[in-house]
Design a protein around this nucleic acid. Structure first.
Length: 430
DNA sequence: TCTGGGGTCCTAGGACCC
DNA sequence: TCTGGGGTCCTAGGACCC
């Protein structure tokens, strides 16, 4: 029997911030999304105050002040580094690890039960991650990924479990499923749980006991797989190799509204430069490009405008300058004066790998020495650009991006130091 | 004043082919 | 009056995930 474990960090962003601020040990803290918009992580103390996940920060300003909640802006450099430490630790403890998101990993524990009790293994994972990295994790163990997710939910929700739940026993799995609302099942979101509820399927157990064929006919094949997984039939394997991306998106809400063309052009240029960098990081070239702009949909009393436009590139490319040129053309066509823009972004798609290049029919052939030399020079230029920016982000940038302190930049008023990734920000113990 | 960003997969329906 | 059957590909939109 296959055995999976899901290891998930508790309140990951909040735990990262607290780790470097022992003075805040028992204080409620929250971490906000980009632009200091919504709450995306809460310490247990903040949860106890009733602060909900995803709530806009301005709606709870009063409560935050009254309860002296400490606020942090998202510090992704810190979280990514702490995540890597947790994942490396897990890789030293299990034969196969799938990093599923910034704060959770699936482990393949097949065979582990022959030499160690699975719950004891889970406890050991918790101890080692805590001792080596300093972060609390919970461990869910089961014969399918969906059940491992559910086990992890139980481990987090019920402290008496000691942070580890093993559901490899089917009766135990059924007992927990009876207690879990169906919308906590992996793959069941608000829409599905609403439709399921109308059919009398309210708990995870109700869903597990539904007929898979009936579910497929009335919903879809994904939910059918979920039903089977809840019954211990593994349909989802561990994904060891990260699949190649099919799409790269770079978008932001603006710190201040954008009403004129020039700052919008600078913002879109910046998004495109970043997307091109990600594309080269994937060793891919893109053949399709989309630009979109929109006003703030929450301000329904103001004039609304939302438009996106796509184009095919004559030849797949990863050159920042080609991509910016194409994006600028699209932006000119969708831009309308007279609106207060709130967000914009670019999307790259239709990737091909660097070694399988389809030339345009009417382009000079590869044999033409001048064009080949030019193309190699361009590649080297992009490579050098990336090398320098990897060492220090933002060193080299396209003039069209404008300055970093431009009005459209993100709001991050509560940003913590880059404790682990910048020498000047190293924490000091006196 | 203030409401995130970045992805994936599936389905339905239309266009088109022989 | 009567108007096939079987298939592919593409796109938009919906739903989900963290």
């Amino acid at each position: 029997m296959a055995v999976f474990a899901l290891v998930d960090c508790n309140n990951f962003y909040a735990a990262c911030e607290k780790l470097f601020r022992p003075d805040l040990k028992r204080r409620p803290i929250v971490v906000l999304s980009n632009n200091d918009g919504c709450v995306v992580a809460r310490s247990p103390e903040a949860k106890a105050l009733g602060i909900r996940m995803g709530v806009p920060a301005f709606q709870i300003r009063g409560l935050m002040k009254q309860a002296r909640v400490v606020t942090f802006s998202s510090n992704y450099a810190l979280y990514a580094d702490m995540s890597a430490r947790v994942m490396h630790t897990l890789e030293s403890m299990a034969p196969q690890v799938e990093v599923y998101s910034i704060d959770e990993s699936f482990l393949d524990l097949s065979g582990v039960d022959f030499c160690e009790d699975l719950t004891a293994f889970g406890q050991r994972v918790r101890r080692v991650v805590h001792d080596w990295v300093g972060l609390p994790v919970c461990v869910g163990i089961a014969s399918t990924k969906t059940l491992a997710k559910l086990a992890n939910y139980g481990a987090k929700k019920y402290p008496a479990t000691g942070g580890v739940v093993d559901l490899t026993n089917a009766n135990r799995a059924r007992r927990l499923m009876a207690l879990v609302p169906v919308d906590e099942v992996w793959g069941v979101g608000p829409r599905l749980s609403h439709r399921l509820g109308a059919l009398g399927i309210e708990s995870a157990l109700d869903l597990a006991d539904a007929d898979p064929a009936w579910i497929r006919a009335h919903f879809n094949v994904v939910l059918e797989r979920t039903v089977r997984e809840l019954n211990g039939i593994s349909c989802l394997e561990l994904e060891m190799a990260t699949p190649a991306k099919q799409q790269i998106l770079c978008s932001r809400s603006f710190g201040e509204r954008v009403c004129t063309y020039e700052p919008m052009r600078q913002a879109v240029t910046g998004f495109m430069a970043r997307a091109a960098e990600k594309l080269r990081g994937e060793c891919q070239k893109a053949a399709a490009l989309t630009v979109f702009v929109r006003t703030n949909p929450f301000k329904s009393q103001e004039p609304q405008y939302s438009r996106s436009l796509s184009t095919q590139l004559p030849t797949p490319t990863d050159d920042t300058r080609d991509l910016i040129h194409a994006a600028s053309g699209l932006l000119r066509r969708i831009w309308r004066d007279g609106y207060e823009y709130h967000k914009a972004g670019v999307m790259l798609g239709e990737f091909s790998s660097n070694d399988a290049e389809q030339m345009g029919l009417f382009e000079p052939g590869k044999d033409g020495a001048p064009s080949e030399q030019r193309s190699r020079r361009n590649q080297q230029l992009m490579h050098t650009l990336d090398l320098i920016n990897q060492k220090c982000r933002g060193t080299l940038y396209v003039a069209g991006q404008g300055q970093r302190d431009a009005a459209f930049c993100m709001r991050r008023e509560h940003l913590s130091p880059a404790y682990t990734t910048r020498w000047a920000d190293l924490p000091v113990v006196r």
